[in-house]
Design a binder for these strands. Structure first.
Lengths: 342, 342
DNA sequence: TGTTAGCACTCATTCAAATAGAGTGCTAAC
DNA sequence: GTTAGCACTCTATTTGAATGAGTGCTAACA
């Protein structure tokens, strides 16, 4: 791809056009730029420059006698070259993250926080893990029912009830627990193969039946965790704040995509590839994978909760989103998470 | 309130008007009714009757020279008197409910099922419980970290890690577990008072510190469960299928309301009061509590998972929703749940 | 007394034409 | 290289006329 380089004045004009367009959402005319930018030149000069910018594919006109709006490429140049980093500012008011026990609650909270702060739509994908088994606990919750608690990496907990099982004494349970944990802890699903399983069954002796039930339950727990990758969203209705997205057709498409978890996962997880220096990726318009989001931009960042729990958090908004603010907010959030969980 | 009673022909006309309007969403003229209903009278006669129905407040005209549309009162009469029960039919194709371990998964699944079947928006409120403590399990997940698993009624599970705790032997843990469970099991939060707490602390002896941590964690678990009453929705974007709801303003309002959990809880929980014989409630237009849903209707039913876990499930759609189908679907769903969980 | 045909009237919707206004491209002068 | 000026283009808004669905009312009819 050709590297586009603009001289200083063209850069200023492009930035002025985009900055104005971000605020108004209306095509920007040469007169406006001439009056409100700090390079004191007439509208005619601006027009000449604009023609050049249009030829370079950075600006476009919705119709002949209208002002200019940025193309996807224009936004791209803006994001890559013209945005001032303003990290300092955003750090002043820290986002209030509460420490919680359940991952889902934390994720939902983060999404809400992000949506409220940016006034766009936030989404967050749960960590995609190798999912190692961390701990298994058998216990007799009530007579006739054996409870199996399976703790997977990242404190994702699953629990199952085995009904109609024979009652075991606390001592018997303790023995089984130790047996299971000493063999299985730290193994991922692929490592729990037939060999390990048979060994456990043999060790179990007279508890062989129970052990079989328990093993199948563990398998189910890990497998289902591997399969689903939860995505949480918040502030979906913020898109109605932006007229260019809020007409029936588009809004419907976007909201439907937000409801379809699988699509989101795709959109977010491809985000890992094209990355900027600060770990933040920006996808503008047609750079998005999801068809119905081609009028949107997506800004993503990867978070790290430790224990290999790496996931993606992102903001979806109109192409004319306040990229500076969103990037700054995301960076602040990530940094804060790092402080809390390391 | 006056009891409205219609003679047979007026009833037929009202039903014909509403049935037609349900399908088209357009005002219904006298000619249409005259042609397509089975009471063979001229449009003029229909018009005369319509004037009466309008005077009674059951129909209205959007403007002078348009056909009639039902008022909220008209829908009310329709729902109360004119709907044929068609329970049989819907039972043929049973909804496919999978049995799952986690309540949230089940609820989400039910909502999705309901939304897909009705093509409206489904919502379901989690059971509002006394929340009794069912089981507590202490264990040493890894060195230096004590894991507390708290099982609340309905298999709602919370887990907490107590970091930096002293290591305990399996025997010590067993002792503590038995101590805690024999004292606390089956108590609700209001029953775990200072007396019980002190008794436990004293029993704990040298483990007093650990016990204190554990108790505070248990308290937190139950309290947070009591506070939050999760609501799941599905098919929110279905409202875009109905033009009268899908223009920007309204759609935004409705979707926002759907995102705000508290509002939904209000809407659903007031549903318990005004109940029809079959356990299903219908709220039409302004009968809804939520301002932004005054153009919608809400049909709710109460479900019962056993163990006192009673909650509400509902369908939101345009006022011209297919009440018969929705009511039948809901009844089928409830019945099926009863079969599965009793 | 209830039903029907006929007709004048109302009002939303649609379409085309006229108008206003924003903004450009181009040229010529500075 | 910059600027003023002007013709030109195209959208958005307004206006008015035509269309048509549907009503209300009256008078005739069974």
């Amino acid at each position: 791809m050709d590297e586009i380089q603009l001289d200083e004045r063209k850069g200023s004009i492009l930035k002025a056009v985009i900055d104005t367009y971000l605020k108004t959402g209306e095509p920007v005319g040469s007169r406006t730029i001439s009056k409100f930018s700090d390079l004191h030149v007439s509208s005619a000069t601006i027009r000449n420059e604009m023609v050049d910018l249009e030829e370079m594919g950075l600006l476009t006109q919705p119709h002949t006698s209208a002002g200019r709006i940025p193309t996807d490429l224009g936004y791209r140049y803006y994001v890559d070259h013209l945005i001032m980093e303003r990290e300092q500012e955003s750090r002043e008011h820290e986002l209030l993250i509460q420490k919680v026990d359940r991952m889902e609650v934390l994720m939902q909270q983060l999404a809400k926080l992000l949506a409220q702060n940016t006034q766009y739509t936030a989404m967050i994908a749960g960590p995609h893990l190798g999912k190692k088994l961390k701990y298994v606990q058998l216990s007799q919750a009530e007579p006739g029912k054996l409870m199996v608690v399976v703790v997977v990496e990242g404190n994702l907990i699953r629990n199952f009830m085995l009904p109609e099982s024979e009652d075991l004494t606390p001592e018997e349970l303790l023995g089984l627990n130790i047996m299971i944990n000493s063999t299985l802890n730290g193994l991922s699903i692929s490592e729990i193969n037939l060999g390990v399983i048979n060994e456990l069954k043999n060790q179990a002796g007279k508890y062989r039946d129970v052990m079989e039930d328990v093993l199948s339950v563990i398998g189910e727990a890990i497998r289902s965790e591997e399969g689903e990758q939860p995505v949480f969203t918040s502030g979906a209705t913020n898109i109605f704040k932006y007229p260019e997205l809020s007409d029936g057709e588009k809004a419907s498409g976007i909201l439907t995509a937000l409801e379809e978890q699988e699509q989101l996962v795709t959109a977010l997880s491809t985000a890992v590839n094209t990355e900027k220096a600060n770990g933040i990726s920006v996808y503008i318009g047609s750079e998005n994978r999801i068809e119905s989001m081609k009028d949107c931009s997506l800004v993503t960042a990867n978070y790290d909760f430790g224990e290999g729990m790496i996931g993606t958090i992102g903001v979806i908004g109109p192409k004319r989103m306040d990229y500076e603010k969103v990037v700054a907010t995301l960076m602040g959030l990530i940094e804060q998470l790092n402080k809390m969980y390391h």
